[in-house]
């Protein structure tokens, strides 16, 4: 068995029942896209645009820097995070908050 699979976590998206595996040290959005899974909107993947915002309902995780325009200090304490900047430390159950919000002129 490959060593990274020894420390992999299961990420479940509550509403849809979708789940995928995230390696230890991997951002959960990267884990979702790596194998073509869907469920969380994918934007800049760098903590800036906010479209992959999630609420972690159960489980442990750490986060990298995220734009305060999209996750305030208070929200961060309440379990909100950007999936692209969220490293699971256990299995997680999450709810998708962000969306691709097109506010360009309506095409």
């Amino acid at each position: 068995m490959l060593s990274y699979l020894n420390t992999a976590f299961t990420i479940s998206i509550g509403e849809t029942g979708t789940s995928f595996t995230c390696r230890s040290g991997e951002m959960l959005l990267a884990a979702m896209t790596r194998l073509g899974k869907k469920g969380i909107p994918v934007g800049c993947r760098s903590g800036g645009c906010g479209v992959c915002k999630v609420h972690i309902q159960q489980g442990e995780y750490v986060t990298g820097k995220m734009s305060r325009a999209h996750v305030s200090v208070a929200e961060e304490k309440q379990g909100y995070a950007l999936a692209c900047r969220c490293q699971p430390q256990s299995d997680l159950i999450i709810q998708v908050i962000g969306q691709m919000r097109r506010i360009t002129h309506d095409l």
């Binding site: 800049c44 800036g48 645009c49 691709m100 097109r102 095409l107």
Partner: peptide
């Protein structure tokens, strides 16, 4: 014809192009 104006090869708009800004 905006799809091809922006992305000439596949002639399709990418949703992220229109929504993701900083």
């Amino acid at each position: 014809e905006l799809g091809g104006a922006i992305f000439y090869h596949d002639q399709q708009l990418n949703e992220r192009f229109l929504t993701v800004v900083t």
